[in-house]
């Protein structure tokens, strides 16, 4: 991986994170790969003030889905995923690409595979709704931070993402 003979290893501006691909957020406002889980928040289809907190653990693929008030999702039965979990995985693949999601969940989908459920072996798992929900609130908290007019010289290392070509 060299760019005209310039080694990736010796470039200050070497790109590490592939730019996040734009996706619609109304259904799944938040998804992250953190705390050994693919986890996130899925909007309720019926009640605007309700959200579902859904997660899949890495390795074991333990599923959980609860409302933000920690009531279990009626659609999830044991190892059979509900629509919220399906939407969550779809959003994660749209946002991070299937490779990064698969790597995090420790699965290897066959080449050209665009869907990840076929290689998961889900089980039921206890949820960690409060943790995921506070992670979402922390995420939203960024939108509340005041802007800064400091020169921030270190941002020279972070050129704005180019078009995904």
């Amino acid at each position: 991986m060299t760019s005209e003979g310039v080694a990736y290893e010796r470039r200050g501006a070497a790109r590490v994170i592939a730019p996040v691909r734009p996706r619609k957020l109304a259904k799944v406002p938040f998804v992250e790969l953190a705390e050994d889980r693919l986890q996130g928040v899925v909007s309720s289809g019926s009640d605007v003030s309700r959200v579902y907190v859904s997660s899949i653990t890495a390795r074991e693929h333990g599923l959980s889905c609860n409302t933000n008030n920690n009531r279990p999702c009626g659609g999830l039965s044991g190892a059979y995923p509900c629509n919220h979990l399906r939407a969550l995985v779809e959003a994660a693949v749209a946002q991070y690409g299937i490779d990064r999601v698969a790597r995090y969940l420790r699965v290897e989908p066959p080449e050209e595979e665009t869907e990840i459920w076929s290689v998961l072996h889900p089980v039921a798992a206890p949820g960690r709704t409060p943790e995921v929900f506070s992670s979402f609130l922390r995420h939203l908290g960024y939108l509340e931070l005041p802007p800064s007019t400091d020169p921030l010289p270190e941002l020279q290392w972070f050129p704005a993402a180019g078009v995904v070509r």
Binding site: R23, L145, D150, A161
Partner: peptide
């Protein structure tokens, strides 16, 4: 040089990021 920066989240990117600088 003069510089304006806004906090955002990863799902806000591309041309839409300018909206974060509406101040």
């Amino acid at each position: 040089r003069t510089s304006v920066a806004a906090a955002k989240v990863d799902t806000i990117s591309g041309a839409a990021a300018w909206r974060m600088l509406s101040a």
